[in-house]
Amino acid sequence: MKIAYDAKRFFHNASGLGNYSRDLVRILATNFTVNQYFLLNKNKSDRGKEVQKLPNVSFVKTSSGKFARQFKMGKDAQNLNADIFHGLSGELPLKWNEKPIKKIVTIHDLIFKRFPDYYSWFDRKIHFWKFKKAAEASDLVIAISEQTKNDIIHFLKVPGNKIRVVYQGCHQAFKEFIFPEFLNQTKEKFNLPERFVLNVGTIEKRKNLLNVVKALEGTNIPLVVVGKKTKYFNKIEKFISKKKLEVFFLKNVSMEELAAIYRLADVLVYPSFFEGFGIPVIEGLFSGTPVITSNTSSLPEAGGNAALYIDPKNPLDLRSKILYLWENESERKRRSELGFQYAQKFTDEVIAKELMKVYEEVLK
């Protein structure tokens, strides 16, 4: 089987869609070695270099020119005699030739429909048009959660029998043994406190960091934050300096260091208002870190019976759950073990089989 990917995000997105793209190709190429996997883009980068080195993965330089991704990439895939073209980020090329090829698109979320205030009018229109067009042109749609599947049915009017749910996994670094020396090095490098609560994700309104700092006011519990800053950060900064809270914002954290930081944390808090899936929850489960997350959107799918759930609009609810875990070592240990068991739903092997099932189905 030959599978071609729109690899723009693979090469150029540091997190989110980039991590999804790199993990998906890595998982398939290592579990189904007889297939050929083509990464199509006009240029490449060092991102995912361990994936690029796999013998069955090839970079293919696509046609150049304005809108080449939309008008030429599909034909480039067909000229490779690819059996399947997989758009990894809600998009498919608009033009194709007569050669047979099956089309699959992954849609991650429709947050722009649920929370339009977070997006400009123009971005909402463009996202909707691209996703709708791709869903209609595809032979099958992959949704990364039941929540996203329901949103695709509701907002894009795609029939449910055209959608397959395949969960995401997370980076290999979170699943591997970490030597105590590396844990200590990471702790020293970032000057981390002895005990802390961790929050991971872009510092934007939807991720709800303001309610985390509100919840920690007066508790003397240190907070460590790993995530890209946006304008919303200014609100957080004002609150922290006014209340004199102990918050550490980390920069330039490698994936291996991030995995170590999860292991060092007492609790992960991820009280997002809405997620297509919520990878940090999975990272926490694999790391054996107790997780507190929201009772909304797809987050209960990611956290299962292992996470503690809160109303993301209620900082007092979050505070009581943080204190409950912070002060209760035996409950942290129980949640850690439960979380690791639940995480086995998201192993590479499980996800690779689910993806391959979709590929085989579309070729029948």
Rank of each mutant, 00 (worst) to 15 (best):
E275W: 03
P280S: 01
N314E: 11
I261A: 02
V158W: 05
L325W: 15
D151T: 04
I203F: 04
A307Y: 10
V51D: 15
H154C: 04
I351P: 08
V212K: 08
L156S: 03
Q70E: 10
V25E: 07
G278I: 11
Q36Y: 15
T30Y: 07
V165P: 01
M1P: 11
F182V: 01
K75H: 02
N97Q: 08
T219D: 02
D123K: 12
Q36A: 15
N211P: 02
G304Y: 05
K8A: 04
P193L: 03
E188Y: 00
G87A: 06
Y232V: 00
L216H: 05
I84A: 08
F273S: 08
V224F: 05
T230W: 03
K175G: 01
F239W: 09
F67T: 07
K228D: 04
L216P: 04
V213I: 12
E181Y: 11
L210P: 00
T293D: 08
Y324T: 05
A259H: 06
H86F: 10
R22N: 11
K2L: 15
R26D: 15
I144N: 15
L318D: 11
I282A: 01
T230A: 02
N19F: 06
A307I: 11
R332Q: 15
E329Y: 11
F85I: 11
I84E: 10
Y119F: 15
F346Q: 13
Y167F: 09
F239L: 14
G303K: 12
K125L: 12
Q172E: 15
E146R: 05
S45H: 14
I153P: 03
E361M: 14
A307Q: 09
S138T: 00
F239S: 03
P290T: 09
A4S: 10
I152A: 10
E275R: 02
L308Y: 13
I101T: 00
K187E: 08
E349W: 01
I126N: 03
N13L: 06
V141I: 14
L183Q: 05
F239H: 09
P290D: 14
F277V: 01
L140D: 08
K113H: 09
N211H: 03
F177L: 10
M1E: 13
Y309P: 03
R9C: 09
R332Y: 13
I27D: 12
F128Y: 12
A77W: 12
G18Y: 11
D311G: 06
K353T: 05
I142G: 00
H127A: 13
G276S: 02
S21D: 09
E217T: 08
E354R: 10
E360W: 12
Q52I: 14
L268Y: 06
L156Y: 09
I178W: 10
I27P: 06
K53G: 06
N81M: 14
E136C: 00
F196T: 02
T296Y: 04
L17I: 06
H127D: 10
G227D: 03
N41H: 14
K238S: 10
R335K: 14
A14K: 15
L80D: 00
E50N: 06
F155H: 13
I84C: 07
V197S: 07
F115S: 01
I221S: 01
F286C: 05
N79W: 13
A265P: 08
S241F: 05
P300A: 06
N79V: 12
E329Q: 13
R195N: 08
N328L: 12
L325S: 13
Y37P: 09
K113I: 02
D317V: 09
K2E: 07
R319F: 11
I107M: 00
S15Y: 13
